[in-house]
Design a protein around this nucleic acid. Sequence first.
DNA 1: GATGAATGAGCTTTCATTCAT
DNA 2: AATGAATGAAAGCTCATTCAT
Lengths: 195, 195, 195, 195
Amino acid sequence: MTSSKKPDKYYAILEGALKVFAENGYHKSQVSRIAKEAGVADGTIYLYFKKKEDILTSLFQEKLGELVEKFTQGLNNQMTAKEALQKVCEIHFSELEGNIHLAYVTQIELRQSDLDLRKEIGLALKRYIVLIENILEKGKRDGSFRTDFDVKLVRLLIFGGMDEVVTSWLISGQKYSLTAQVIPTIDFFMKGIES
Amino acid sequence: MTSSKKPDKYYAILEGALKVFAENGYHKSQVSRIAKEAGVADGTIYLYFKKKEDILTSLFQEKLGELVEKFTQGLNNQMTAKEALQKVCEIHFSELEGNIHLAYVTQIELRQSDLDLRKEIGLALKRYIVLIENILEKGKRDGSFRTDFDVKLVRLLIFGGMDEVVTSWLISGQKYSLTAQVIPTIDFFMKGIES
Amino acid sequence: MTSSKKPDKYYAILEGALKVFAENGYHKSQVSRIAKEAGVADGTIYLYFKKKEDILTSLFQEKLGELVEKFTQGLNNQMTAKEALQKVCEIHFSELEGNIHLAYVTQIELRQSDLDLRKEIGLALKRYIVLIENILEKGKRDGSFRTDFDVKLVRLLIFGGMDEVVTSWLISGQKYSLTAQVIPTIDFFMKGIES
Amino acid sequence: MTSSKKPDKYYAILEGALKVFAENGYHKSQVSRIAKEAGVADGTIYLYFKKKEDILTSLFQEKLGELVEKFTQGLNNQMTAKEALQKVCEIHFSELEGNIHLAYVTQIELRQSDLDLRKEIGLALKRYIVLIENILEKGKRDGSFRTDFDVKLVRLLIFGGMDEVVTSWLISGQKYSLTAQVIPTIDFFMKGIES
DNA sequence: GATGAATGAGCTTTCATTCAT
DNA sequence: AATGAATGAAAGCTCATTCAT
């Protein structure tokens, strides 16, 4: 049972792009390099993607889709809001730690885009953001979270914090365990730093 | 008594670049456009900068230097750690809110760089990061902050959170006040979300 | 049955380059001029040649190859050494007299190159030089030539002499017949000037 | 008693150019490099030379003038024609062997010029060529040389032969003694190769 | 659908030359 | 006369995209 509606070459190109982008960065990656990596002709790329930039955005949307699916699978209603938040952070960190190419692309290459692309990315991230919002609101409702914070602001602070931790780990050369940061990160989100 | 050692044209080019980068993004900005904006000949750029990328990094370092100076001026030892942290957030948000070109360049264009450049940027950011670290450590010492959190992790979470808030505000089209987010942001950093 | 392994465009570009180089000189010939002359796009040049200089060296090697083939066809073992030498001079002079573009490129443009390129050219000339050496050695063996001269020196003196005669004829504006110089030239090589 | 009518800087620039041209070749030598080598400002060059090419031709003419003077000094009427020819070859080889920078410029860089410049060089070489012609004619008159050769052709063959020997020695990396070639060279010119 | 040769617009960078001081 | 900062034209080369096969 396969759920993929797109032809194999579509995914082959995306996987090639993932590798090439991760190695060279978006702007330094030639379409012909991606084609070679994917085992197709240069022209074939343009049967599946309108322009080079489309490869980048499609890559992101596919990968994000996979991630969101993993988040959805990883969460369930029995969990407390805190547990859910921790699960989200766990998946976020471990998925990127386990797929270094993907980490490069999401943390570095995907930022190499102009404002329009950034907006599109923001749109694609929406589902993930909403997921965090839902957790925050659930926590508010069941009394495990404070009720006097702005959900939209805090979801940015939480996402931004995690994002920075991943980027910093990546740039440092992955010298330490990223997943080991899950517990202290959630601890900060829950209690802050005030004594 | 002027502290600027560099010739006027150096700064003219940087200002031109700031505007052009903000409008078009780094990769879509031609050197000749920057030259025209700065009121110099194309070749003149190369008397002051080795290559195009150098304009971007120099721009960043100059602007960051100005910011750090503003942080330094804005802080004093009478402040509590919390007040200092709030001041940092205030300056961070208000400076970028007050200089939309700079905001574009720092939040969008500067990310358009490969890993090596990102490392260089990380290095330049060090002074700002250290400033946040110092505040955290001061808070730990004087008892106003908890002592059981990792300074290096929390500084990333704080910086990343603020950074994401700025980027989100920018991408949204600056539809709301960025400085209005200072108090709730600091509130989150201090108390977290746990009830 | 065609012996040419290279695509037509390869030769079209070389012929275009031959014309453009002869008219303007190597350094004053733009790649785009050559492309137009060859009836291809600028970029096509770079599918067949790595860089501009490669066009010059390839041109030289192709043309020299043709020349050497003509030398080989023109010579046979029945000839005396003197007849062979005369034949070489005849072909050398007549080929260049009959192809003024080629003459310009070999005598003028090809010298417009730095030491490294000159070495490469020297290497390519090797086959021609060897051919002269073989004639000299044959003459020594069969007794028609003296045996007390240095083959390697004399081949330089002979080649240099012919080369200078061609260049001089070219610079003078081809006001006289180059092939008419064959007999007196060979006469000098054979007998010298001593009475 | 100084015979130089030109200011010191004129010669300083020429000496700088000699060094820089020899090291990098004409086309790869920047005017600013020559200025620095000569210890003058870039603009100063243009007080003494109209354009870059003028430096090359002036250099050649000055140096050739010195050479011709040396030839004139080295020759005297007591010499036989053969002795004179040998002296010319001796000076030609030894001067270039003793001044490697000059050798590079005359044998390699000076050839890097278009047809117009080549004509000008030919004109400047005239005095040297005439000198060889005079020797040939003297030999014809006094009976030491044959009378049935064309002076204009033979002077080319002699000059071209010597020139090629020098270039070959230079390109080979000066691995052997150039002056050691004087005797066998003259021997070839006098007797040819016929047994 | 697939190919890959061909295209040609586009841009950074160099450097000979100028000219205000 | 001397300077050297400034100029800006010029061109080699790349590479995303097309299209005939």
